[in-house]
């Protein structure tokens, strides 16, 4: 079977557009650069102090679990015991914003390190079933659930957004093309709309 990917160099991001049978709109994938991103790693034995500081200084409830917590324009995603990704909704100096947490955690600016993929549409879980080994049924992966796992041999952190069925994946920047090719290869059968969001 021929695919739109056959003619595309593996180093080149697949262009925006519709992939798959005309008239089928099963999945929409929006590729975006997170406006601001940092990692947060609790210092040894400082987990409780970090949670308390995050609550007082940022109003953020840092769950030490693979879950999303969000408050005041900040989103925290649990990636490991005592470790989180922190994302801001608007471009900003995130380490400066988080400075109050510095006594309790190592904070590392990572804004350019990851590329985001926001997936939605009626067939989003059919697409993801071809690469994700985590059960995404809402009964076990409800809104706000997060996971770090290998998807199509690419390490990603992802979560289900609260509200409508929408998943966001973060992949290392140098893997973004490979991840986009996985989405096209796995999603075209359902009709995939690929768009870049500024």
């Amino acid at each position: 079977m021929t695919s739109a990917l056959d003619a595309l160099p593996v180093t080149q991001m697949p262009p925006d557009g519709h992939y798959g049978p005309a008239g089928k709109h099963g999945v929409t994938a929006r590729i975006f650069d997170p406006p601001a991103l940092a990692t947060l790693a609790a210092r040894h034995g400082a987990g409780a102090a970090l949670s308390a500081a995050a609550r007082v200084e940022l109003g953020l409830d840092l769950a030490d679990a693979p879950r999303l917590s969000r408050a005041n324009g900040l989103t925290a995603i649990g990636t490991g015991p005592g470790r989180w990704f922190l994302l801001a909704e608007a471009p900003e100096d995130l380490p400066a914003h988080l400075a109050a947490l510095a006594p309790h955690a190592a904070i590392t600016e990572q804004t350019d390190a990851m590329v985001g993929f926001e997936l939605s549409g009626p067939h989003v879980r059919d697409l993801l079933a071809k690469g994700v080994t985590v059960d995404l049924d809402p009964s076990v992966f409800p809104p706000g659930a997060a996971a770090t796992s290998n998807v199509a041999h690419i390490n990603t952190s992802f979560w289900r957004e609260p509200g409508d069925e929408r998943f966001v994946f973060l992949a290392g920047r140098s893997y973004a093309v490979a991840f986009a090719r996985f989405l096209v290869a796995s999603g075209a059968a359902f009709g995939l709309e690929l768009v870049h969001r500024g």
């Binding site: 679990a65 693979p66 490991g80 080994t133 985590v134 996971a147 796992s149």
Partner: peptide, 11 residues
């Protein structure tokens, strides 16, 4: 204990 049941290929 943190992530839940995962395939051995991740380890």
């Amino acid at each position: 204990p943190y992530c839940g049941a995962r395939d051995a290929s991740e380890f």
